[in-house]
């Protein structure tokens, strides 16, 4: 189905990919300043002022990292839309109490809970019924110690 395809593919939209011009301008100005700061850091280091060089290198490095992170974030957010469609499982149980054979398979269209199946139990040949349909969420929820 379409939703399965949607879960896998990465979709793009030309219009929405356009990053706000003003914001992009600011990011690039800061990027340029950070590069200049790094140059100054190198220059100051060769002059002999190690403390000033360290300060410039720190400021330049942090600004550069922030700018690159912002650009990466914009690119990522604008291009990716993912919806996880988890696997849904169907539990089938044999109605013969002496057997109680249990099978778990992937959900098929037409399955519903308490549906009597035409397929006989592979162990005892008894009647089988769907007893549960559920999805298993594999991602562990984040817990907070409060």
């Amino acid at each position: 189905m379409r939703l399965n395809k949607m879960a896998q593919q990465t979709q793009q939209s030309g219009q929405s990919n356009k990053i706000g011009n003003y914001l992009l301008l600011i990011v690039f100005v800061v990027l340029a300043l950070s590069v200049v700061a790094l140059f100054v850091a190198v220059e100051t280091y060769f002059i002999g002022d190690i403390i000033a060089a360290g300060i410039f290198a720190g400021i330049g490095g942090i600004a550069l990292a922030i700018c690159l992170f912002l650009l990466y974030q914009y690119r990522r957010q604008a291009t990716e839309v993912k919806i996880d469609i988890p696997k849904v499982m169907t539990t089938i149980e044999c109605q013969n109490k002496g057997c109680a054979n249990k099978t778990i398979r992937e959900f098929q269209r037409g399955d519903y809970i308490f549906k009597d199946l035409d397929v006989a139990c592979p162990k005892c040949g008894g009647k089988q019924m769907i007893t549960a349909i559920y999805k298993e969420v594999k991602v562990k929820e984040k817990t907070y110690s409060v």
Partner: peptide, 21 residues
């Protein structure tokens, strides 16, 4: 505001794809 508009724009883009699907 531009930062916020950008965030809303991204979410709106996602919503449009989800709605179309």
């Amino acid at each position: 505001m531009y930062v916020m508009v950008r965030e809303v724009e991204n979410s709106l883009h996602k919503l449009r794809i989800i709605k179309e699907e």
